Amino acid sequence: MKTKLTTLIALLATPSLALAHPGHEHHSFSSGLVHPVTGIDHLIMLLAFGLLIGCVAVGNRHKAQLVVAGLASLIVGLFAGQLFGFSMIVEPAIIASLFVVSLGLWHAFSPSTTRINMALAASISMLFFHGYAHGVEATGSISVFAIGMLISATALMVVGSVAGQLLRSKWISVGVASASILLVLAS
């Protein structure tokens, strides 16, 4: 219980990391394309989600379905952010997402398909907040930005998936969690 309270306080005290990198100024195709690569929080999440796919998905069709589900969550978040506006939970949720996907990677090797499916569902759900942050900042139409963002996000997930297939180790989760901790400490 004490650990959960400490984690919650740390997340709530976390600065606005999602706004601390380039790509928020304009919602053009090129900024959408570059943003997932220059935003360390997005980069970690998308690569880690790809790693998770590579560790759990058996066939290419299953991998493609998981990538599409992740992209759908990003897009729904993007348009929800534009529709509903600012929310205090988005920034802490983005940071939490990095640890959720890390925990998902740890459980990817569980013999329980329920546990694996929960890890995938939780990670896909957390991608929503990465999209939401951009929707809040959007001015005018964001569809061109969304296309660029989807291309980069897809590429990062595929790279992560290939790496996940090659590495296939629950210890990848420790690397993702470590990178996430460094990101929080660096801000």
Rank of each mutant, 00 (worst) to 15 (best):
G160D: 11
H21G: 03
H27T: 08
L127T: 06
S110N: 06
V184L: 10
G50K: 02
A80L: 09
I172M: 13
S31L: 03
G81T: 04
L78Q: 11
A138T: 04
A10I: 08
G23I: 02
V68E: 14
G77L: 09
L120E: 03
T3H: 11
L166E: 04
G135Y: 12
I172F: 13
T3F: 04
P22D: 14
L47Y: 11
S141E: 15
E137T: 08
L120H: 02
V162C: 01
H27V: 03
F84D: 10
L78S: 07
G70S: 13
I9G: 13
H27W: 05
A13I: 13
A133R: 04
M126Y: 09
G164P: 00
K170E: 12
S143K: 10
A57K: 08
S169A: 05
A69L: 14
V101P: 00
G54F: 05
L11N: 09
A146F: 14
A10S: 13
A93N: 00
I75G: 01
A10C: 05
S28E: 10
A80W: 13
D41Q: 09
W171Y: 10
W106R: 03
G54N: 07
V162S: 02
I172W: 15
A18G: 11
G104M: 02
L8Q: 13
G81V: 00
L71D: 03
S173G: 10
L11C: 09
H62Y: 14
S152V: 05
S152E: 14
L150H: 06
A177P: 01
F145N: 04
M149Y: 12
A57L: 02
V90C: 00
L46M: 11
A57F: 08
V162E: 03
V144D: 01
L156C: 05
A179I: 08
I172E: 13
Y132H: 02
W106A: 09
L52I: 04
S87K: 06
G160T: 09
I94E: 03
G50N: 10
L47Q: 07
A119R: 04
M157A: 10
G135T: 07
Q65K: 11
F128A: 01
I89S: 12
A108D: 03
V101L: 06
N117D: 07
V56M: 05
M45L: 11
